[in-house]
Design a binder for these strands. Sequence first.
DNA 1: GCTTGACTTGAAGTTGACTTCAAGTTGTAT
DNA 2: ATACAACTTGAAGTCAACTTCAAGTCAAGC
Lengths: 149, 149
Amino acid sequence: MFYTIGEMARKLNVAPSTLRYYDKEGLLPFVERSSGGIRMFKDEDMEWLRMLGCLKKAGMPLKEIKSFMDWSRQGDATIGRRLDLLEKQRQSVLEQQKQLEDTLLMLDYKRWYYQTAQAAGTCAVHDTMALDQVPERFRPLKEEWKAEE
Amino acid sequence: MFYTIGEMARKLNVAPSTLRYYDKEGLLPFVERSSGGIRMFKDEDMEWLRMLGCLKKAGMPLKEIKSFMDWSRQGDATIGRRLDLLEKQRQSVLEQQKQLEDTLLMLDYKRWYYQTAQAAGTCAVHDTMALDQVPERFRPLKEEWKAEE
DNA sequence: GCTTGACTTGAAGTTGACTTCAAGTTGTAT
DNA sequence: ATACAACTTGAAGTCAACTTCAAGTCAAGC
């Protein structure tokens, strides 16, 4: 079963021009062509594209993804390098998760801040608020901020 | 206590030019100037900058951060809009967390794939491998892929 | 055979987020 | 008073990741 670039793009929820761009950059060495030069995507190409999407969403630059693709074509001798890249990216994902945790706490604090301000009708309530009126989970946050100043 | 742009940049681990760029874009409406025109950052500016950094790392575009800054200057009437933006960003963070979870599972699967390939000396081991040889946690992943094809 | 929509390419344009540069100013230390 | 590092600005340059455009080709239906 074959798909044109338009069909594949619809499946993946990206623009066809994006897939052409990836192809030009050497990220899709696996796509075959019809005798007339039209790209023919196969079902098994999906796994590569899925991985590509995953790595991209995890913030890996296209250049590094290309390295991975290049190494894959070069065969078993490059397995070690591929593993290294995956390991590096795993580390990056763990760091991003930690970062998002921090951001979520900050957002929740700010949401609490504005919810109470909204209830009071003004942000000024926070000027006169004692620390023990701040929900416990947000207190470490404020302490941390003080330490950095 | 005041800080120059260079001192503040060092504290935040960014280039001074970045802070100037943010200022030009209207993201730092709170910075004061000396009589000679030099930016003077205050300790309390840190909280804004910290929030800015957090929102940026959570993928919020500078334009939206600017909206938030604009609304903050406009006073209590905009509390609702600020809450909406925070809520939206919270949602975005939750989605990103889910995305990173998926990516991590994929990375772990691929790492397992290449680790076993490395042990065998070739990727070909996976051609002859039965599904029950794949660690349990990765099986849903392979099933999911089949469904999408 | 012809139309039509989807494909092809290379080149140029866009966007977001900075960075670099040139020319000039500020402020601290001697 | 002068030197000098660090600041100021506007303008231009850079980079990644696309998108758009123009001119042409392919292939499925009538």
